[in-house]
């Protein structure tokens, strides 16, 4: 039977790219913080060169990220309402406190690390891990609790966000190490095993990310009508190029090939390309989740 919509109103959603960028930056920050604690929190000596870079990146990114949120507010000067009139059921309120505590903890952790006080560095590193996980987990909750949007409202959203944070954080750290070893400290002797080790971790987290995306898609495809339509939007609709082409193929499969193929897995430029592609893929994933979720019509 033919159905034609003669008249309808759809309100413009003033939410999107900036929020996706914010999620991306928090993910990078959480990822690099956790990598920085490998050496100083858990005592893995191999990753010691990453400790200081990791905490500096984590702090800087977490200073930029809330700025983006403030710009996105329609009334940025009323930001203090978030602290004064908080409502505890809203994930944004959780974020208010996490985004305050986490950078402070990062700074204390970094301060003791640069001072060389290893015992206190370890304490604040271990406090920082749950904070880093929560800072990024809560962004997953922001989407998961927006129950009007079928692409967002799934229990797997916080884990997907955590794993993709790990993916993008590892990729960024690989790039940072490559830039440091091959451009800034070119003359010095350096050991590429650190890059290979990070590459292995990147493979593990990309595979985990792909598994979680696969689980999400499987459930969407077999769930109710709206979920099925959302899955089709990703697989063959308006977001299919971005999802299949950029997020899955360029952002996950090509890096996996580069990191696992015997000829390229010890080839540093190859690892660099894989890292860049992974970071682009995760940015595309954030964009698809936020903007794609909002394009599904409601009325």
């Amino acid at each position: 039977m033919d159905v034609n919509v003669i008249y309808n109103v759809e309100h413009e959603m003033h939410l999107g790219t900036l929020i996706a960028l914010y999620f991306y930056l928090t993910g990078l920050s959480a990822g690099s913080f956790i990598i920085s604690t490998f050496a100083y929190g858990f005592g893995m000596v191999k990753y010691k060169p990453l400790g200081k870079i990791g905490v500096v990146m984590a702090t800087l990114l977490l200073i930029i990220a809330p700025m983006i949120l403030l710009i996105d507010l329609a009334q940025p000067l009323r930001f203090w309402h978030l602290i004064l009139y908080l409502r505890i059921t809203s994930p944004i309120t959780w974020g208010t406190f996490l985004l305050t505590l986490y950078p402070i903890n990062c700074m204390i952790y970094g301060y003791f690390m640069f001072k060389g006080n290893l015992k206190r560095t370890k304490i604040f590193g271990l406090i920082g891990i749950p904070l880093a996980l929560m800072v990024h987990g809560y962004t997953g909750f922001i989407l998961a609790l927006g129950k009007a949007r079928v692409l967002w409202n799934t229990a797997i959203m916080p884990p997907i966000f955590l794993v993709s944070a790990m993916v993008s954080g590892l990729a960024m750290m690989i790039l940072v190490v490559i830039v440091k070893d091959y451009f800034i400290q070119r003359g010095k002797e350096h050991d590429p095993t650190l890059i290979y080790g990070l590459g292995k971790l990147l493979v593990v987290s990309i595979v985990l990310d792909l598994i979680l995306i696969g689980i999400d898609l499987t459930v969407l495809l077999t769930s109710h009508t709206e979920a099925y339509i959302a899955a089709l939007m990703l697989l063959e609709g308006s977001f299919s190029h971005l999802f299949l082409g950029v997020e899955v193929f360029l952002g996950a499969l090509v890096p996996l090939f580069l990191l696992l193929f015997p000829l390229t897995k010890r080839w540093v430029p190859g690892i660099a390309i894989a890292s860049v592609l992974t970071m682009i893929g995760i940015l595309a994933m954030r964009y698809i989740m936020v903007v794609g979720g909002l394009t599904i019509p409601l009325s």
Partner: peptide, 27 residues
Amino acid sequence: HRCIGCKYCLASCPYNARHINPLIPIV
């Protein structure tokens, strides 16, 4: 006077009932 315009309610409403006022930026 309290709305900060974070637009989370727009994203949460299943009925597309909320909108940003184009003149004064609040919901």
